[in-house]
Each structure stands twice: as C-alpha cells, then as structure tokens.
Design a protein around this nucleic acid. Structure first.
Lengths: 357, 357
DNA sequence: TACCGCAGAGAAAGCCCTTTCCCGCAGGGA
DNA sequence: TCCCTGCGGGAAAGGGCTTTCTCTGCGGTA
C-alpha cells in the first residue's frame, strides 16, 4: 500500500503538506503544490490508512450500536432511525449483533470502546439478571467516565439516557381490545421470560384483563424464542392444552406470524374462530393475510430519538423519553365466536383452503 | 482513557511486558508480574486502543462487505452466510449499505480499503453503466494489487472471484411454469432496468415464453423499485392497462408481496383469478397468504461460498461458482382461469373477504 | 535602506501499541 | 573457576498519520 510519504516524495513536498492537501486543511497551500499532490494521489491510488488517521487525530467520531439482530425487522427499523440522524451529522455507525447473548453484549461494549466510538447505543430488551446488569452498568459507567455518551433503547436497567417504548401500556391496549371483543379464553405466546420486554408487555396485558374481571393464569402463557418459529411452536403447545382458546396475543409480530402459520395449518379461521394480536407493527404486518392487528411502536422514531440524545449536548441529568404505543386495528382480531369450536367448521368465510403449507 | 503505559506504570513493569500479558504473547512472563499487570488492567478498566493495535500489527484481519441494504431479507440471508464463515475463522465483518447508489459503493470501497480489510465482498446486482463499472474495476484492481482479495456475489462485471446465482435459469423456470399452467397474458413487475439482476431474470423469462411460442412485449413489463411498494405500484399500473392479465411475475419476493397487496385491494383472487410468482424465496414467502410460489435462490449458501473463496487459499485464476435456482411451488400460481375475468367472481375459493385492507 | 510581519513550507513531536533486539543473570557443563 | 546457554525483562524502533512549532523569504512600511 502506498503511504503518505510515498505521495509526498512523488510530489516533491513534505508529508505535512501532502496531508494538508488531502484533508483540505485550513492552512493554505499554493495551487502548484496542491496539484502535484493530487496528481501523486491519483497515480498511486493512494488511500489513507484509517487506523493511522484515527490514531493521530484522537478524534472520536463513530458511534457504536449494539442490537440483538439487525436483520430482525424490529431492529432494522430502529437502525434506520439511528442511521438517519448519524448520516446527517456525518457519523459512521458500527453495528454489532449480540444475538441476545449477554456475554457477547459485554464483549461488544469493550470492542466498541476500544474503537474509540464517541457514543454507544444499546437497543433491545434488558435481562432479568442481576449479575449481568451490574456488570454491564460497570462497563458503561467506565466508558462514560472517559467522556463517552450512552443511550439505551427499550431497557430500563441502565441509568443513562434512555428511549423507552411504552411496552406496558401496549400490553394493556391489547388486553382491553380483546376484552372489548368479548374474549375470555386468551392465550399468550410470549418471548423468553428473562427479557424485560416480555414481562413488561405481559404485565400490561394482565392488568387489562384483571380490570375486566378476567384472569391470565400461567397455564395460558407459553414462553419461546422471540421469532417466527418460536411463535408457531408456542401456539401449537397452547392449543394442544387449551383447544377452546378464542384469542392469542403474541408478544411480537414475528411470533404472531408464526402463530398464524400454525392456525392455518390446523384449519382454524382467523379471526372467525380465533383472534390474533401482534406487537410492534413491523412493516410486514400489513402484508400477511389477514392483515395483522397489532400494537404499534414508533420504531424508526425510537432510533431517531436515541441518536439525537447521544449526539446532542449533554444534559446535566440523564433523560428518559417514553414513546407511546398505539393499537392498530386490522383483520386478525374479531368478536368472540358465538358458538363453541364444535360448530366453527361452518363459520362464514372459513378458509381451510389456505392450509396447504 | 487509560493507556498501556498507565497500566505498565501502575504494575511497575515495562509497556512491553504489559502488552505481552494482555495479548497472551508466547513469550513467557513470570506469574508475579502477570498478576500485577492483570490487576492494573482491572483497576484502570483498561481497554486497548483498537486503532493503535491495528496500526502496530500491520495485520489484516477484518473483511469488508458492501451490500445494497442488510435489512432487506435478500441481503440479510446472504450476510448470515458470510457471518457464519467469518465467525468460524475469527474474522470481524465490516458491513456497509450502499442503498443501490453506485457512488456510495465506490466510496465504500475506498473506506474499507482504508480500514485495511483483508478482503472485500460486494453483494447485489451490478449496473448497466459502463463508466461506473470501469471505475469500480479500477478501484478493485488497485486493491487487489496490494494483496487484497475480492469476491462479488451476483454481479458479473468484475473479473475476480464470483458467486453467481443463476438468475437467468430462474427466470426461465418461472416462465416455463406459467406456460405449463396455460397462461398467455403474463405481466412482469420488474426491478430497475439498470440492474443486471433485472435484465438477467427477464432474459430467462423471455426465453421460456419464446420457446413456447408466446411473447413478452415491453408493454407488459413495468419497472419500479425492487421493494414492496415498487411491486404494489407496478402491479397497479400493469392492471390499469391490461386488466385481462392472468399471471404476474415479480422479479423478487418483496415486489411479489406488494403485488399481492394490490391484487387483494382490487378484490382479485390469487391464484383463482390471477397467478403470482416471486423470486428469491426469502423466509417470509411461506408466511404470506396464499404462500408464495417463487424461484428459490440458495442465499445463505451464496454468502458461505463467497466468504470461503475469499478467505481460502488464493487460486491462480479467479473462480466463478454458479449456484442453481429452483422453483418452489406453493399457492400463488394456479392454472389459467377457464373463463374470462367476467365470470371469475364465481371461482371456487374466491377470497374477496380478505380484501379488507 | 532597514526592519517588521506574515504567508507558505518543512521538521519533528506525538497518538498508542507491538515486536524485535539486546542485556543481565542464573545455572550447568567442562 | 570460567564460559556458554537460555530465560525473563526492558529499551527502542517502528506503524502511518496529524499538527504544532519553527524557519525562510518576501512584501510593505517607516
């Protein structure tokens, strides 16, 4: 690789001058020299060594992001928001997938710190795990002590800046909707119980049911991976035990899609025989059939806010922004069937024909 | 931030020794010193400066990846394959989204080169753009000249290692399937015409139709963005002009999903009144309703192959691996309706009821 | 004419590590 | 007892760039 001194030598100038030309320094350089440098750069196909640059200007510019998985639509949307603000400010993003592994999360904090990022953003659920939480907090505190800025999205265990979707109210909205439609036998397809997101959403849901004089026994909750297959599997387990369920709440949209797949395979018509509610309103939710009724979270906006917090002027006290959840009525939630499952085969618009998968 | 010499001073050793302890050097260090260093590291919360490390060991380890958009399922799958191999070999990936902007692609090549990546992988369609292609090739050649390795996925304009999905045959399979089902009035919802992926798939499709004595006039092709909304919009334009279409081929699954949305909104039953074919077989394809009939590409495997090529021993000549496309029959493609659209309303299993969106 | 000031260029001091090279010392063989 | 070997440790040389500081030479003013 050609180096700066190669360029300087070729142009017959000092490395200092070459550097100034290449970086558009404020220090003036005569046109003659400037052109010679530029010519040398082109001829040698010179590209500055980023590590050397980053080392020399002890300039923190990039921002580190830790998510569970960018290819999960939930995080893809959040990341879109993060990107938007970062790009506007000419910042590079370093994005790391923890795949919901706490240890990996810890490692990435160090990695990003080592890369001298100006700020760190952690997105995704927190864990019900004292030891881990303390460890993470220590690491974040150490980072902040050296001038780094930290924001978290959707996890309350850290004391810095935070953007919180209102998971609890979201769960509450889902519960109220279902009660309003007359459902009593409601099953829940939940994410891992160690995630705060799971328990928050569940808590809101439970509150709504309790207020309406209904119950949510543990026996009607199934915990599984927070993805499509987890949802499909949990739904199957739920139905095996409780065939008379008239509604299923999935704690995120991916699981809801899995739930729909299972229901379709079993020939249960949605929403005529059984209703389904999702959570998040990721883009695909409107394109499944029937279109998914779900609780919408302003995902892109969450990213925008978090990045703005972290790149904005440091406030004296850590700020917490709570973003509201909102129910989006589409086609998977309907009134509780009048009759029991026994007669459901004759329900109007039953769509056994779809269950070819 | 604490530096290595801070640690060394605190432990009462030289920076050299501290470095050896921290990096687990092969050079032996007595236990006494080792412990003192480790203690100092813990107390100071020391994290090595990655840039300094990378500069000092002129060690190329990371691999650069340029894709159109990781959050697009097509690239998410490919990236999954890339990651798998990279992780196995302890390599870090630097992933950049070009968002189908050629200039940004060029910039990222330089950026990654500057970051001293060991290899570069470009995934996604190439462009029908002579000037750009030449520029890109120059940059890649310059990079290769300094010992970098390059592989491309799904773009043939570069002469290095390549992994090519067989887009043309995929298009051919789609065309043959539709002909077999008796369709003659076939519309195409295509991606941007500047992309080689678009034209390759189109060419295969056209060949199949021609072989069967059918035609594919330009008037039955609509070019739009390669995403859901592009597909929805193109489908609408197509139907406005040609209401008697009995089949639509979308040139990727995202567009197919958009097409399904438009058809549903217009109350056209799939596949009873109109058939739809997708392309790629991304994971969501089986979860839309009706489940999408599509041309499967081994996306994860494409990533695996490309990374293996680039990290494997350098072959004397650039290698090209062509991966086969395969038709996956699900529920969106059916036989051409016997009657014209006028009587289609009485087709069995018509599902007007779904069009509530 | 003598001096001051400033523009434009270069020398050199870091930035923080890794790694080679070298040194001192202890132990073993002659 | 002397020399050689080898081990554990430190000194120092980069790695490629930025940036401060210094120097030269020119134009302008008194």
């Amino acid at each position: 690789m050609a180096t700066l001194s190669d360029v300087a030598r070729r142009a017959g100038v000092s490395p200092a001058t070459a550097s100034r030309v290449i970086n558009g320094s404020s220090k003036p350089v005569t046109d003659d020299l400037r052109e010679r440098v530029l010519a040398a750069v082109a001829e040698l196909q010179y590209v500055p060594n980023a590590h050397a640059q980053l080392l020399a200007r002890s300039h923190r510019s990039a921002v580190g992001v830790i998510v569970h998985d960018v290819s999960d639509p939930y995080f893809a949307e959040i990341t879109r928001g993060l990107q938007r603000v970062a790009t506007d400010q000419g910042r590079l993003l370093m994005i790391c997938n923890s795949y919901r592994d706490p240890d990996r999360e810890l490692e990435y904090v160090e990695l990003l710190r080592g890369h001298q990022v100006a700020a760190l953003i952690l997105a995704g659920s927190g864990y019900h795990d004292e030891a881990f939480t303390r460890q993470l907090n220590e690491k974040l505190a150490a980072y902040e002590a050296t001038g780094g800025r930290v924001a978290v999205i959707g996890r309350h265990e850290h004391s810095g800046d935070a953007v919180m979707p209102d998971n609890r109210t979201g769960g509450y909205l889902a519960g109220r909707e279902l009660c309003g439609l007359g459902h009593r036998a409601i099953g829940v397809v939940a994410g891992p119980r160690i995630l705060t997101t799971t328990t928050d959403r569940l808590a809101g849901l439970r509150q709504a049911l309790t207020e309406q004089g209904r119950e949510l026994p543990e026996s009607r909750i199934r915990y599984a991976e927070f993805d499509r297959d987890g949802g499909a599997e949990a739904t199957a387990r739920l139905l095996d035990v409780d065939p008379e369920l008239t509604a299923i709440v999935a704690l995120n949209d991916s699981m809801a899609i899995g739930a729909l797949a299972t229901l379709r395979a079993r020939g249960l018509a949605v929403p005529q025989q059984i209703s389904v509610l999702g959570f998040d309103d990721m883009p695909i939710a409107r394109d499944v059939t029937p279109a998914l009724t779900t609780v919408r979270l302003p995902l892109v906006d969450m990213g925008v806010r978090a990045m703005s917090l972290v790149l904005g002027v440091g406030a004296p006290t850590p700020r917490v922004e709570v973003l509201p959840a909102e129910l989006v009525r589409r086609d998977t939630a309907g009134p509780v069937p009048r009759s029991t499952r026994a007669t459901a085969g004759s329900a109007p618009r039953a769509r056994r024909g779809d269950s070819t998968s």
